[in-house]
Write a protein that binds this DNA or RNA. Sequence first.
RNA 1: GGUGUGUUCGUCUAGUGGUUAGGACGCUGCCCUCUCACGGCGGAAGCAGGGGUUCAACUCCCCUACGCACUACCA
Length: 496
Amino acid sequence: MSSPARTRVRFAPSPTGYLHVGGARTALFNWLFAKHIGGDFLLRIEDTDQTRYDAKALVDLIADLKWLGLQWDEGPEVGGPHEPYFQSQRLPLYQKHARELVAGGHAYPCFCTSERMDELREVQKRNNLPTSYDRLCRSIPPETAAQRVAAGEKHTIRLKVPFNGDTVFKDFLRGTITYQNRILDDLVLLKTDLFPTYHLANVIDDHYMQITHVLRGDEWIPSTPRHVLLYQAFGWEPPTFVHLPVILGPDGGKLSKRKGAASVGDYRELGYLPETLINFLSLLGWNPGGDEEYMERDRLIEVFTLEKINPKSAVFDEKKLEWLNGQYFLRRDVDFFMPLVKPLWIKAGADATAFSEDYFRTAVALLKDRSKRLPDFVAYGMYFFQEPQAYDEKTAKKYFGPGSESLLETLHAGIASLPAFDTAHLETLYKETAEKLGKKGGDLIHPSRLAISGIPFGPGLYELMVALGKDAVLRRMHAASAAIKSGQVKTVLTAA
RNA sequence: GGUGUGUUCGUCUAGUGGUUAGGACGCUGCCCUCUCACGGCGGAAGCAGGGGUUCAACUCCCCUACGCACUACCA
């Protein structure tokens, strides 16, 4: 036996679009496994489909992985001992191996055109037969085939799959999986354009890059027997296969852009933190066995094991994601939020020069524990930077009724004559005024809150007033009372 | 059609022959409270169906149903 190999895993995306959360989860599990066990995590770009090549997709993909913090040990940008990590730059290697397979009698040139293949498939489908290549070119004598190839005739290279017997492999999560060779057809290894198919490139690269564990989506299970056959043809040892369950949308179908957010970029824009996504995705199809749910990156690495992966596909529950994000908001401090939130406020119209850094920090401090996503700071916090433009309709109906203008004026006068503008004095003022008027505290507090913020919820009123400053509070109280008096209260529906 | 794979509350899950089937999100009642959020205490809600094996099945086996995937010179 050889000495135990260093554990090496890879994430091998095809840069054909945005990074889907399913792909992100696959990358994450690879990464967690490598980090947990002290192995290597590689990034390999499977760009062997020239017709679907998209340069922007690659840039986005790399940016998304970095945003999530899934740094690779080998791959694009960082290099490594097995460069290049782009399959499109490894063509000679695949072609050489394809030729060797032909020479060794494991593969053969196929001259069938795409048109013939389409026709064949159509006929088979129509007759309710399994669709598979009829192996027409397999019976061409090797010398004849070689001559035709030498003459420059267009062809693919196909693997000779045995007619009988079974191909058996072990999936780490599901155990032994058996396929009858007779239902496997002779797959294409090398395309007409001399690019390899996924099957060929993937097997060759995993071998030379010394990949020990293949963690990939379970849509690859049906292809695995073909890969195993390839490993056998080359005389190589296959890696351990771990097929991960898929992530589904709320309707039990695929998670798709059509039905809402589906990519890492979508969730970033919705205001979720990368650590939230990491934590949430890790819990989709895996869990450490206990009640722990809030887990930071290091904790996940510490407890992550392949054995605890669940083979069942899981539905992406955005409500729970939102809750988790809120848990992170509770635990992160003001410094953490400043660079994330301040630009959002400025973009929404906050005048950065009119407010001090401390003022921004106070607003963050007051808002972060009651926010679930980054945009909440804007949706429910712009009143820190501008006077309310309108008042929440439902609440205005309740608290800006007849007589409320004089109540606001009374409060206004009280605040104006306060010896000190702090929470203690404000609280005393409100208590005494309520008592004097024979009202409950809430009867004064709610209209005040609405007057100064325009919305019916938010930080404690006294804290909020102190944060906004005496002048702003007085101005807003007065503006609200004036609006009520004139019957010109502008209202708006607030989405809570 | 064929092949494969999966099936514990609505959702994420714990469970590995004997449990009042546990937790979380969401929903909901109460408490805390100036609102919201947080937090605390409760509640409703689940082993797909049928056969076996066994003294005993959510747990093991078989069948059925349903979901999903694959069935390309895409990955």
